[in-house]
Amino acid sequence: MSAPAPEASAQAALEFVEDGQTLGLGTGRAAEAFVRALGRRVADGLTVRGVPTSERTEALARDLGIPLISLAEAGRLDVTFDGADEVDPNLDVIKGYGGALVREKIVAASSDRLVILVGAEKIVARLGARGRLPVEVIPFAETLALDRLARLGYPAEIRNDGNGAPFVTDNGNLVLDAQVSAIADPGDLDTRILAIPGVLGTGLFVAMATAVIVQDGESVEVRRS
C-alpha cells in the first residue's frame, strides 16, 4: 500500500510560516507538497523568499511564483521545510534517498529551525532500520570511499540513475548507498564517515530537526525537540 498523499502535513507546516520570512525549501515528495501549499499562500498575498535545495525544487517554486534567492544572498534562514526517509525518537533523521542530501544539510544548517514532514511509516525505533545510508562523494574519491566504508563494516554501492548510469547529484557528485542496520550512535557514525577523504556528507542529520510533523492517514501530530 502506498503512503497517503502528504497534503495534511504540508498544511500543518504552514503554521510555522510567518510573513516576511526566508525559507529553505527541501526536496522530495513531502517537501514538494509543502512547496505547492506555500505557493497557494504566496498567490494569496503571503510575502516570503525561498532558498531551494535542488534544481527540481527550484523549478517547481519558480512555476508557483515563489520568490527565490541564493543561499549567499539569504545568509541566515528562518526555517527550512523538508522530508526525511527515517526519523527516530530523538528526532534524528536519515535523508538523501532523493539524492539532494548535501544541499539539504547545508540549507538546514543555515536555518534557525528545521521542520521535517514525514508519513508515519518513516518513524523508526533506531536509524538504519530501512537498511540504507546515502553518502555523497566526489567522483575522484569513489574507489577510496567504497573501500573505507567496507572497512568500517558498511559495504556500499554506487547509486544508479535507473538507466544504467551512475546517479549524479546537482553538485556533480556520486551517491554511495551504504548498507546499515540499526545505528547505535548516529553522530559517531557520521563523524567516522566524514573522515574519509572525498566524502562531502552523509544522510545522517543529527540534532538538527526542531520539529517533525508526522502524518498518519489524514491525522497529523507535531513532535518537537
Rank of each mutant, 00 (worst) to 15 (best):
A74V: 08
R62K: 14
I123S: 12
A72P: 05
D188I: 08
V115R: 07
V137C: 11
E58P: 11
L204W: 05
A12Q: 12
V35D: 07
E86A: 11
D112G: 15
L71S: 02
A43D: 12
A150L: 01
I138N: 04
R29Y: 10
V175L: 04
R36G: 06
S219K: 15
E18A: 15
V199F: 01
D185A: 10
G45V: 11
Y97E: 05
L14Y: 14
D177T: 08
D188P: 04
G39K: 04
V17P: 15
D177Q: 07
Q215A: 09
V180F: 04
P155Q: 03
R148A: 03
R192Y: 05
F34W: 09
G75F: 03
R76E: 14
L64D: 05
A10V: 09
V107W: 00
S2E: 14
P67V: 06
G162N: 03
M1P: 13
N90E: 14
P186R: 02
L149R: 00
L101R: 04
D170V: 04
F34M: 06
F140A: 14
S110M: 01
V35P: 12
L68V: 10
F16W: 15
A156M: 00
V102H: 00
A13M: 07
R224W: 07
A30L: 03
S111F: 00
V42S: 11
G26E: 03
P186H: 04
L189I: 06
E55W: 12
R41W: 10
P89I: 08
Y97L: 13
G28I: 07
L101V: 07
G162T: 05
L149M: 01
A30M: 09
G39W: 10
